[in-house]
């Protein structure tokens, strides 16, 4: 079973529906035992970084995630805020600590063209750096983005980035993979058949 982490914010329903479409057994939970027995953990997110971390902390989910994903190497899929949480810190509304599983900082988008607006809302093309895994058999990697901040990965860990999206000179980390940790900045659950295919690829990759 797949477990979507319920921390009181985020578009859990959309992700639930998307995996349901793939015929997967999936639940929305904050229960330690359910997360422990799940095949993979999915962390969605709509909202502010600090509020999200606060909710995870208050629900004691941080330790559980650390144990399952870092110690037990359970597959993790972070979507949007679920990607940004991986960073050491975020500069969204102050400076806030993240999971610290990836070396990098979440910073605000600052496109160099005035016609490019912030938030970055809409369908955009990604440049795929690593075709295997998430992008297998995806011909046109165009996805729906909805964010004002992005994860800037530290130079020393650049090799974990699997695709980028250029937004007015900002090289957005669109997807990354570090061992059992997968994360995407865009919304595959809302990127039509291309997004559904990416979710299918995630499942295929962790099951191979």
């Amino acid at each position: 079973m797949l477990a979507i982490v319920d921390y009181g914010m985020g578009n859990v329903r959309s992700i639930y529906n998307a995996f349901n479409l793939l015929g997967e057994e999936v639940c929305i939970t904050d229960d330690k035992n359910t997360l422990s027995s799940a095949e993979a953990i999915i962390v969605p997110g709509v909202g502010a970084f600090s509020d999200g971390m606060k909710n995870l902390r208050e629900k004691n989910l941080l330790e559980i995630l650390e144990k399952e994903v870092i110690e037990k190497k359970k597959p993790y899929l972070g979507i949007c805020l679920g990607l940004e949480f991986l960073a050491e810190k975020s500069l969204e509304g102050g400076s806030h600590t993240g999971f610290g599983w990836i070396k990098g900082t979440v910073i605000r988008l600052q496109p160099n063209t005035p016609s490019l607006r912030v938030p970055h809302i809409g369908w955009n093309d990604t440049m795929v750096l690593k075709k295997e895994g998430l992008f297998k058999e995806i011909q046109k990697p165009t996805f729906y983005f909805l964010h004002s901040y992005y994860l800037k990965v530290d130079e020393s860990e650049k090799n974990i980035i699997t695709s980028i999206c250029d937004y007015g000179g900002n090289q957005i980390t669109a997807t990354l993979q570090k061992d059992n940790i997968y994360a995407v900045q865009f919304h595959p659950e809302k990127s039509q058949s291309t997004g559904i295919k990416l979710l299918k690829n995630f499942l295929d990759d962790i099951r191979k």
Binding site: R13, N17, L146, K190
Partner: peptide, 26 residues
């Protein structure tokens, strides 16, 4: 399976949260 914006008479954050839970993105 495309993004969905929901609106009309929204007056508090509780209802925003409810719409997001129900599958709205904005």
């Amino acid at each position: 399976f495309v993004p969905m914006t929901v609106g009309g008479w929204i007056r508090d954050t509780t209802e925003i949260n409810q719409f997001l839970k129900e599958g709205a993105d904005k």
